[in-house]
Amino acid sequence: MIEIRNVTKRYGERVAVEDLTFTVRPGIVTGFLGPNGAGKSTTMRMMLGLDAPTSGTATVNGKDYRDLQAPLHEIGAMLEARAIHTGRSAYNHLLAMAQTHGIGRRRVEEVIDLVGLSHVAKQRVGGFSLGMGQRLGIASALLGDPAAVILDEPANGLDPEGILWIRNLLRSLAAEGRTVFLSSHLMSEMALTAEHLVVVGKGRLIADTSVAEIVAQASDDSVVHVKSPDATALREVLLGAGASVSSDQRGALDVRGLGHERIGELAAARSIVLHELTPKTVSLEEAFMRLTGDAVEFHATTPDQPRLEVAA
């Protein structure tokens, strides 16, 4: 259980996090989502006692991180920027970390095997690829067999196989009853891994809800894509049934306000041939962009364009 209560962090004039409050519960994967510069890493650093909040409290199992007697057993963390001396071997890095808690060499070898780094464990970390570095970071996080795991952008630099591996690893950690908290800007990845989402923008809380709920909210006005050789007639029928219809292509309609079942029935009743009838589920990506649309710090200017339709 990790609790953030009314946390504000200022660096000089700049406010990185403002009055943030949320709880990370055990037994599920909680995703921490937000555009670049939203304050995700700062928040994680405060959870880990690396940065002190300007005001408010961040606690782990009810305690300030700095008061933990054996932090590696309570929280294992991997921060986005590598936090490993490049001149040391993976084995010696993990051994030095383990020794602070009196954890034995056997556990060091265990986590090296677990992340699949056995063949390079004696090599200097400086020569590691991004993916190997991530795996070592995850090994460090799991070293103390912690009750909670905090990972900043864990999928960064991993190949598809590695991403699948970490997705399964995180799920199994949560299934064992652990608290799993991870940040990512890969929304599609989050949809597959996380159950609960904490969304921040410009240092403020935007949403604290389940993944399903966010998608449901965002898809209230979801779209059904219809293709028909007799689109003009179908359009009249659908408008008559109270839908709103737009078209950006000959023979294709985007229908709002009617379910795909109802559209199919209406077409059948009028004997209108359909070539396509596709409900467009709103993806987490799109839901996220709607939520944070106002809170993106670094906006790319784009010309007016039709709304993104990304299938989940």
Partner: peptide, 15 residues
Amino acid sequence: EYSTGMIRSSFMAVP
């Protein structure tokens, strides 16, 4: 430790 970021690992283990 500061230049490589190792200091954060050190302080996470020994807060």
